[in-house]
Design a protein around this nucleic acid. Structure first.
Ligand SMILES: [Mn+2]
Ligand SMILES: [Mn+2]
Ligand SMILES: [Zn+2]
Ligand SMILES: [Zn+2]
Lengths: 140, 140
DNA sequence: CACTTATTGAAAATGATTTTCATTATCAAA
DNA sequence: TTTGATAATGAAAATCATTTTCAATAAGTG
């Protein structure tokens, strides 16, 4: 999904289109790796010097609310965001450069059914995330 | 693994045994749900009034370093800890009361191999976590 | 253009975690 | 058992991320 569509989504949900939002959206949407609020701020401010960090926080909040971005949990921290996958997808992260790839097709039904049996839990959700080295980083 | 063994581990790694550590270890080891530093503090202080929050942080840090506890990531926050599973295990969390169950026996080899093929990543780790309702909370 | 009000950025407030430091407690060695 | 080196402690201060407050500004509707 392109940056323009994110802006349209914002507008359709009653939010105004502002320069600050345009720049933040562009920075996040373009990125192949998860970005923290400060990282977004630093990148975005290169195009729009007057931008405030508060506005980055507020914009990320709205993008998350509209499911356009998602929070990424990593061993070193859980404050970074990446554009959300479409449908049921999970993340694969490069431990060296942070590059994110999405994947789908995991089938945990047999497993969850078995665990449900053993534990007595009613299982309704799962988090799955893979870590490794991207093609580029493998080369080094 | 019992609290005594955690204390032994601490000692064997050159850390001294103190009253503060004993109390913190007991609180964390006993708990069936993940606890934040403040929660540990509140629980532990019932047995040892003079305990400082700083000491809770420092003790949790050491327990994590020795792999006796592990951080638990949840939608509402990622600062809670629970005793670490033994061997290759994953967590199943009750979305209502927070009760934690461990499970093992997931086999993601076929999946990761296939994803590795498609993406070019060399996959070395995975995070898997299940969410649902524990038997008690289902009853309500 | 005019008007309503959502949005903005600066500054202050908050909350969690870390650092500093003087005091105390642990434990190995005498 | 006593002694001594030093690891560990808790209070207070410092730091860092995030949220709130607020007056000024800009977006979008009519
Ligand atoms: Mn899945
Ligand atoms: Mn596994
Ligand atoms: Zn990489
Ligand atoms: Zn429950």
């Amino acid at each position: 999904m392109a940056a323009d569509q994110w802006l349209t989504q914002l507008q359709e949900n009653g939010y105004r289109l502002t320069e600050a939002r345009r720049i933040v959206v562009e920075a996040v949407e373009k990125s192949a790796r998860a970005l923290t609020p400060i990282e977004v701020y630093d990148i975005a401010r290169k195009k729009y010097r007057a931008l405030g960090l508060v506005t980055v926080y507020r914009t990320l909040e709205k993008l998350e609310e509209l499911h356009l971005i998602q929070r990424v949990h990593q061993p070193l921290g859980c404050q970074a965001f990446i554009s959300a996958g479409e449908g049921h997808q999970h993340l694969l992260l490069c431990q060296n450069c942070g590059q994110v790839a999405f994947f789908e097709g995991d089938d945990l039904d047999v497993l969850t059914e078995s665990i449900a049996q053993k534990t007595g839990y009613q299982i309704s959700e799962h988090w799955l995330q893979l870590f490794g080295l991207c093609a580029n980083c493998r080369a080094d």
